[in-house]
Nucleic acid binder design. Sequence first.
DNA 1: TACTCTATTGAACACCTGTTCATTTAAAAT
DNA 2: ATTTTAAATGAACAGGTGTTCAATAGAGTA
Lengths: 196, 196
Amino acid sequence: MKTDLRILKTQESLRNALLELLKNKPLESINITELCRLAKINRGTFYLHYQNVHGVFESYFEEIIDDLRKSYEEPYHQTNFNIQNLKSDMIIIFHHVKRYEGFYHIIFDETNPIRYYYKLFHAIRKMMKDLTMNSIDYLPEEQMEYFVSYQTNAIMGILVEWHSNQFSTSPDELNEYLYNFSNLLKWFPDQQGDVE
Amino acid sequence: MKTDLRILKTQESLRNALLELLKNKPLESINITELCRLAKINRGTFYLHYQNVHGVFESYFEEIIDDLRKSYEEPYHQTNFNIQNLKSDMIIIFHHVKRYEGFYHIIFDETNPIRYYYKLFHAIRKMMKDLTMNSIDYLPEEQMEYFVSYQTNAIMGILVEWHSNQFSTSPDELNEYLYNFSNLLKWFPDQQGDVE
DNA sequence: TACTCTATTGAACACCTGTTCATTTAAAAT
DNA sequence: ATTTTAAATGAACAGGTGTTCAATAGAGTA
């Protein structure tokens, strides 16, 4: 069964109003009253759908993340799927973030809840797990999980750094760096050393 | 010149009131009015010192992070400084987080601003940069910055994972994991493959 | 001790929040 | 087309927010 048209209309109005307001002011300074005023929605109605302004933003973010998932599942990407090289697949993420640069500026903005960061993390982790399972012959279950988290976090670290320089580095450069880093770790003098 | 005693008294009252309230309710549900009521501070006075409840929490967090910095600079640690092994130095962080476990539960809570995550990130990053510069002969400036963030966030990821299992793993085990990850990368079949 | 600064106070203000409830409106079902 | 169902509305509520301002009080200074 499909959603009541009135619900769709209300949610759409609120989202459009939010995107309109975001052109001129930061997310954390937008309040429910002005959002409803612009959307021509009764404030009480707002609370039937969301708890706060972040709820509206989050539902939009979910669609953006769906777009990332779609890029990953794209036919082109699938046929060029290269189980020899995890890293080359990560460029999809860099291109995605670059495409929605203005949006990700908000996601990584220090005043916003870490929930958004976690959402992105989980989306990327899912891809990373998929890729890793296809690349490694065997790894004990627990170690596999940790390793996937480790790799995903490293990518997230690159995104944090990227955000802090206003996404000025190119996706191709980032991908190149990422490739270099894993090699770098191998050359590291430390890793065979005594632990503690 | 030293700070006016009245200022110290006000800030101290607010901090104590916050810690008291935190025993019974989550940070995001504490409002300024009740905080001031408990601290016996006029609400207007609050605004002379902070913008919101997070400001009070943040000033406390800064001291906790100073404690982490101190552990890192400790004489014992300095003399045992081992440029051969980045990882063994990271156990300091695990012990620190474990010591302030209740506190870090808040830092990683998804409703709180990512600012706290970044604060910890930057503290750890400073150590990581220090250690990395001592371990790697040469890496171009920009790439070095990304690499340090890459490594730092891998640590952060372990902390997030640790938080999600209520800090039940022991610091020593975590350190063991961290050690394993870098070895895992070496076994990887992919990393020599062609990059796009 | 008396004097000077300045932090704190209390009152007041317009505005926002989160919730309730009877009423209106419009979509879905028959 | 009519009925049924449920979403949206407007008004009202107690309480929180962020700010101003004159008055008070307490810390630093001479």
